[in-house]
Amino acid sequence: MVNGLNLLFQFLDSFAFIVLAAAGLAIIFGIMGVINLAHGEFIMVGAYATTLANIRGGLPLPVAMLVGVAVTAVFGLVVERVVISGTVPNALSQRFLGRKVIEPLYDRLADSMVATWGLSLIMVQGVRIVLGNSLDQIGTPLGNIAYSGFSYSTYRVLLSVVALGVLALTYYVFTRTEYGMRARATIQDEDTARALGVDTERTYMTTFAIGSGLAGLTGALYAPTITMVPGLGSSFLVEAFVAVVVGGPSVVLGTTLAGGLLGAINAAVTNLFGTFFGRIALLVTAIVMIRFLPDGITGFVETVRERRQEGA
């Protein structure tokens, strides 16, 4: 017997997890053409900062979460300046060697993967050395919703509302603000944008910080529900990458549709056949999508629209 409320809650839970896991990754990939393999470790930074601020700093959980977001955003900014754009090492080498040594990693997919993968190794081991093999964990707040013999954690259901909020806010930022317009101009044609007075360098920097901040938010939100170990980021990676592949180039619409589709598939299969088959279904969906819709859902929508326009 399938219990409808169970299925609904499992769907919301799964939807929130996929959307939140993917949001930061999708923004950085979609706008900067950088595949951030350290995405999971950015989530870890958010989760660790939140936990430390709450347990050791004594801050109330919501404030600690904001600290987690801020710390990760600033950390992202530093990574962008040092590793991704190479501005800091270039300034140093300019001064001492008289030339630049690093080409920015924008739109260099394979190179950015190798660089960020290395970064992720350094981060996991660095955190392990400085903070040990685990941290004490915050308990999940808000209790549970009980219904006819079943119950579900209220907090986890609420996360789906937060996920929708994140999507709405991202949509607003990229369509209704000046920064959003600059960012879209930069994606579409960097040279023209620069000719028209857009500081693309600064746009990239801001974008990376926003993407990192979102990863930090994910870490902050899930900190009270997962085990605090240096490698915790890896548990988000499968969902994040599958969602970006399935979603395609449009950041907000793609992430929403991917979260909806994958969340539904995952929840339904898990509910009927168990966790093991739920994971398989997620990966099979990714394989099918890459084979038949290589540009993802939004890429497909885009192609269809273009064809219609040509036909008209």
């Binding site: 219990n3 169970n6 809650f9 499992q10 839970d13 799964s14 997890f17 079943f150 579900y152 954690s153 986890r156 997962i226 085990t227 890896s234 548990s235 499968v238 929840a267 898990t270 509910n271 168990g274 966790t275 093991f276 739920g278 994971r279």
Partner: peptide, 15 residues
Amino acid sequence: EFIPLSNSQFGSTIN
């Protein structure tokens, strides 16, 4: 139920 080692979400298992 057997849980893959990569799984960290237990909503449906709990139900």
